[in-house]
């Protein structure tokens, strides 16, 4: 994950350098309106690189070359987290889901399963229902962001599949989550 992020940053830097885009990261804005024009031109002239930049920003550098397994292994759609005994979406979860929605819009052929999970503390029976409610609230939020319901299916695993083994606050916070599995691309 980290390596890929570093690689992506390097790629962006290399591209900007090779394009002679003078002050791309920290633009000294106003006084150089003319220089931005050729830079923009260079970018439009290389649409492939452009798309690469976009996908780098979304954490994926060659969608077409990857299998569904690759995409899942790379955690293309990262987990989102919940408060104890809650299925309400926190601010951080909404931000993350907004990114997921963008990515799903950029890849309209992708279909996903949204898994709802709970930490070990509740009862097995109640957690089955809570995991279901979490997965559904994520699905509904993605629908509200314009993703078609046909592309998403929910499943609850209750507390059956913890991501992190352990019995502390941190382990619990990691296990109260929705996990995304890409099933079709």
């Amino acid at each position: 994950m980290k390596l890929r992020a570093i690689f992506s940053v390097c790629a962006v830097v290399l591209l900007t350098v090779s394009c002679h885009k003078a002050p791309a990261p920290n633009p000294k804005p106003a006084p150089q309106p003319k220089k931005t024009e050729p830079a923009a031109k260079t970018v439009t002239e290389s649409p492939l690189e452009n798309s690469q930049i976009n996908e780098n920003a979304l954490g994926n550098n060659s969608f077409s070359g990857k299998s569904v397994d690759d995409l899942n292994r790379e955690e293309t759609l990262q987990d989102v987290y919940f408060d104890f005994d809650k299925s309400a979406l926190t601010g951080a979860t909404r931000d993350e889901l907004a990114k997921h929605a963008e990515w799903l819009k950029a890849h309209p052929s992708v279909k996903i399963v949204i898994e709802g999970h709970c930490d070990e503390r509740g009862t097995e029976q109640y957690n089955m229902a809570l995991g279901d409610r979490r997965a559904t609230s994520v699905k509904n939020y993605l629908i509200s962001l314009g993703i078609s319901p046909d592309r998403m299916r929910t499943i609850s695993y209750g507390e059956l599949r913890p991501k992190v083994k352990g019995h502390g606050e941190w382990a619990w916070s990691q296990n109260r989550r929705c996990h995304f599995v890409i099933v079709e691309k």
């Binding site: 089955m128 229902a129 279901d132 559904t136 509904n140």
Partner: peptide
């Protein structure tokens, strides 16, 4: 899509009580 969960038989054995979800509501 959702859960079918926690079954229990009636004392006469004719009915099965359970919890299930539709649209995320069990």
């Amino acid at each position: 899509e959702g859960i079918g969960s926690t079954p229990d038989f009636s004392p006469d054995g004719k009915w099965l009580l359970f919890s299930a979800s539709k649209d995320g509501n069990t």
